[in-house]
Design a protein around this nucleic acid. Sequence first.
DNA 1: ATGATTATCTTGATAATCGAGATAAAACCA
DNA 2: TGGTTTTATCTCGATTATCAAGATAATCAT
Lengths: 161, 161
Amino acid sequence: MSRDKLQKQETLDCLLKSLHKYGMRTVLFQQNMAQKMGVVHTDLKTAEILNETGPITAGELSRITGLSSGSVTALIDRLEKTGYVMREKDEEDRRKVVITPIQKRQKQIKAHFESLAEATKEACLTYTEEELVVILGFVEKVIRIMDHENEKLMAEREENN
Amino acid sequence: MSRDKLQKQETLDCLLKSLHKYGMRTVLFQQNMAQKMGVVHTDLKTAEILNETGPITAGELSRITGLSSGSVTALIDRLEKTGYVMREKDEEDRRKVVITPIQKRQKQIKAHFESLAEATKEACLTYTEEELVVILGFVEKVIRIMDHENEKLMAEREENN
DNA sequence: ATGATTATCTTGATAATCGAGATAAAACCA
DNA sequence: TGGTTTTATCTCGATTATCAAGATAATCAT
């Protein structure tokens, strides 16, 4: 391999390791944040999912979180009691229960992430717009990869049932 | 604000949102992976922590994971029984218990992340070395930010005890 | 030395999760 | 249409991760 290629290879290895480290910190952060908010890890995770997906059914939530249907029922009970979500019967298919996130609470959650967001924004200021575009493109790429990997894992899980 | 600045601002907002989305997927991935490996979320998280820190005491583990000392005892019991770690008395301070990860198991864990690592590596090939360096620098920067935020959250937690 | 502190473990209680069965709505189909 | 099957959620009893408080044992400080 040429010297340049070797160099690139090394950068790449380093990047993979760093992404892994970043992932671990993200998991810890989420755990810490849930604790600070006085909810279980699962509940914050669910609120975050709903924040991105918008209203979804209990079944979809079960698939995404990997929880049993019984656990999802309990989970929704908790979130409903604490005002994070609303249960609604799906008018199209009345077996289904649609879980709708409640805006007010979503904003409260977002507020908890403000410090992290600010610090990150601050760090971005040192970059040129071109660099930011490269970084953004990369993040979007790894998001798609993650989606694919998660999809695979969810499918595997369903096979074993 | 100038037109260029506006553009940059927009990219930045987009990046922040994407990072948040990436974070959620990371949490889900870790959860899915733990399930696939047949361990609880906490156990995989702990193994990952140990993989990065190397041997640490039960107390440090308690601080990092946010678990009570009792839970950490149970956690280590589980990990020891399944061969992920070893308990050793610290020779310097014999109250302490040092938790040492077991290499063989760590490799098995790493193997589970192989698919993700490969896909990510693949995605990186489209970038020049210069771009990779920029991305790597960014990831390292957000790692430091995460460390700082986590440190803050852990400190807060300790105050309330 | 002795009292205070620190690190981990033990124990009983709580609550999140599971798994299997119940219920009810929708889809299928003869 | 009526009856069977499938699907979506819920219920309930059992399991287990977690907590909180107290026990134990080693270290530190005076």
